[in-house]
């Protein structure tokens, strides 16, 4: 109905472009500001900056890895709620294999293979039986958590309340410890991000993913069926999950029933925080996961520092971080307001 729209002057177009760029940069700006505030607090308190930065990387890395892979799913306008459960499950199998073989390579390969298999099961089942992807992942969440829970319980070595499988052999612990470094983690993330960015922006597959997210019907009519590219997206997400699971194992040297329990939902937060629309499509970006994941973790750390002496602070931290999250998403979406309520 908004018939034809004629461009006013080049000037207006330029202004619009500048505005778009500002909005696009907002998530990055938010990350920079949050980082600056964090560093300021650390320095002002005479805390150890190096340790704190390492902490941030350690806390964020699994989330960011999983979220980076998950971008492929989100790009399609779909989402997977079982990512956390899948991380838990692949870490469980991974640690069993590692305990048996002591091979780091096998740990990573197993985690990736298992995670990709879970992803494939999700996507293939839903495409063969035409099931809504999301509900399939809800079912998968239960199944994976339960199976992993059973495996962990049966093989538990823990003395604590939560059953857990740990790497207890000191030689094996040393092997894991050797890669439990910030540099290794950053390297893994960088490699994976580069691969994802390459696939996403420089290959036919990536272009088609984005196109699919924008309009699946048109994509189908252009010979890009959701069933096929959905599977590819889930495979990419599986790789991210596998890497996250393996890195988690090197970090904690154990897997318990609570491992990665909040990753599934945090991925949503991270991706949206990073400036990507939940509906996917043309505005999807790989860096959203990285920017958003780190922003979210840093924000929580800042709030924890600021409120350290407040009673019930974890409640307040969560409230404030949720409010800031909504505020940033609100501002970032300002260009895309529509007359009716979004769904």
């Amino acid at each position: 109905m908004e018939e034809v729209l004629k461009s006013r002057s080049g000037d207006a177009v330029k202004k619009q472009k500048v505005k778009n760029i500002i909005i696009m940069l907002l998530p990055i700006a938010a990350l920079v500001v949050l980082f600056a505030v964090y560093v300021a607090i650390i320095l002002a308190n005479d805390y150890n900056l190096a340790i704190n930065l390492e902490t941030i990387v350690n806390q964020a890395i699994v989330l960011v890895l999983v979220a980076t892979g998950a971008i492929f799913i989100f790009t399609l306008g779909s989402f997977d709620i079982s990512l956390g459960a899948s991380t838990l499950f692949s870490a469980t199998v991974g640690i069993l294999v590692f305990n048996a073989t002591g091979s780091l390579l096998l740990l990573f390969l197993t985690c990736i293979a298992v995670a990709v298999a879970c992803s494939l099961l999700n996507s293939v089942l839903s495409s063969v039986f035409h099931l809504p992807m999301f509900v399939m992942t809800v079912a998968m969440l239960s199944v994976l958590t339960s199976i992993a829970g059973t495996i962990i319980t049966t093989n538990s070595t823990s003395a604590g309340a939560n059953p857990a499988i740990s790497v207890s052999d000191s030689v094996l612990r040393d092997i894991l410890g050797s890669v439990d470094t910030v540099w290794f983690k950053v390297l893994i993330l960088a490699l994976f991000a580069v691969v994802c960015i390459f696939v996403f922006n420089f290959t036919k597959v990536g272009r088609r993913q984005k196109f699919l997210g924008g309009n699946p019907v048109c994509a189908k009519m252009t010979g890009i069926p959701l069933s096929v590219y959905g599977i590819i997206a889930f495979v990419m997400a599986g790789i991210g999950v596998g890497l996250g699971a393996a890195v988690n194992v090197t970090y904690t040297m154990s897997v318990s029933t609570g491992t990665a329990s909040d990753i599934g939902m945090s991925v949503f937060i991270a991706i949206v925080f990073g400036g990507m629309p939940i509906s996917g499509g043309a505005r999807s970006r790989i860096y959203a996961a990285i920017v958003g994941g780190f922003s979210y973790i840093i924000l929580n750390n800042i709030l924890n520092l600021l409120l350290s002496s407040v009673d019930g602070r974890y409640g307040y931290v969560q409230i404030i971080s949720a409010v800031l999250f909504l505020a940033i998403v609100y501002v970032a979406s300002i260009n895309y307001r529509v007359k009716h309520l979004p769904r």
Partner: peptide, 23 residues
């Protein structure tokens, strides 16, 4: 806010959980 409800509901869930914890 007029942002997709899936996003607001994530934020709202966190806020309500936070309030419950504070209480």
């Amino acid at each position: 806010l007029r942002i997709p409800p899936i996003i607001t509901s994530l934020g709202v869930a966190l806020i309500f959980e936070g309030i419950t914890f504070v209480l």
